[in-house]
């Protein structure tokens, strides 16, 4: 099986380039992550991020044959050869497939991803009815892999100002939480031409999300909430 893997060493290379690798031993059900580990065994200078190997940690997001995805959840048998693997687009490359995610985390921190409660804290935990808890389904599952945000053209053009689909999905996760009391502040913060309204419903985020989440729908719900608050 033929692979073309993006290589980049900041000390010796001016720009990233693709390097060919060949694997002969392809067991049934082999995931791309396993293949990359085999390639790493062939060529120890190659590096990529990975950890849990089962789509929970979100470390091995990469661009696989042109589409973002998690290497650990992508069976190589489903991919056309040569399998071209690059780092996720729009992020500064540190080395090979490893990118600098600072910008992504900056936006995540900026939406205040925690409950804000103005009332005095109760003695016990903050309670929530099962129905209200259900409203967080499809939001809380995000593993912050960054596949969506780095597939978003609006993020490519304005990475410093547009929050990106992942952060906006999380913004809605806290807006939708019955225990959170900062609805108005959160909405105010997302107004303006850049932070949320750069979204043009391109929906790359929905296509690539390995957890099957829908950031576009979350963004739409934030807009609806804003409208309700205004009226």
């Amino acid at each position: 099986m033929r692979f073309q893997i993006q290589r980049y060493n900041p000390e010796t290379d001016k720009t990233p380039y693709l390097k060919e690798y060949e694997l002969t031993d392809i067991p049934i059900g082999m995931m791309l992550r396993d293949a990359l580990l085999q390639i790493k065994a062939q060529d120890e200078s190659f590096t990529f991020r990975h950890s849990c190997g089962e789509g929970v940690c979100g470390s091995d997001a990469m661009n696989i044959n042109g589409t973002n995805g998690l290497a650990c959840l992508t069976p190589v048998s489903k991919l056309a050869e040569p399998i071209v693997v690059r780092s996720v687009p729009g992020m500064p490359i540190i080395r090979d497939l490893v990118v600098d995610m600072s910008q992504f985390y900056h936006h995540y921190r900026a939406i205040k991803p925690y409950l804000i409660v103005h009332d005095p804290m109760p003695e016990v935990e903050l309670r929530q009815s099962p129905e209200d808890r259900d409203k967080l389904d499809g939001l809380y599952e995000c593993i912050l892999c960054g596949c969506c945000t780095t597939a978003c053209p609006s993020f490519w053009w304005n990475p410093d100002k547009f929050r990106g689909p992942a952060a906006l999905l999380q913004a809605y996760r806290f807006l939708a939480d019955s225990r959170d009391q900062a609805t108005n502040e959160r909405l105010q913060d997302l107004d303006g031409p850049y932070r949320m309204f750069r979204c043009h419903t391109i929906m790359n985020c929905v296509t690539v999300c390995p957890k099957g989440l829908n950031p576009t729908a979350a963004i739409h719900k934030i807009k609806t909430l804003m409208l309700k608050e205004m009226i």
């Binding site: 105010q188 107004d191 303006g192 031409p193 932070r195 205004m230």
Partner: peptide, 13 residues
Amino acid sequence: MSWRAQGLRTWLL
């Protein structure tokens, strides 16, 4: 949110 919310207003109009 008020009517002065620029992003929302432009989008809505």
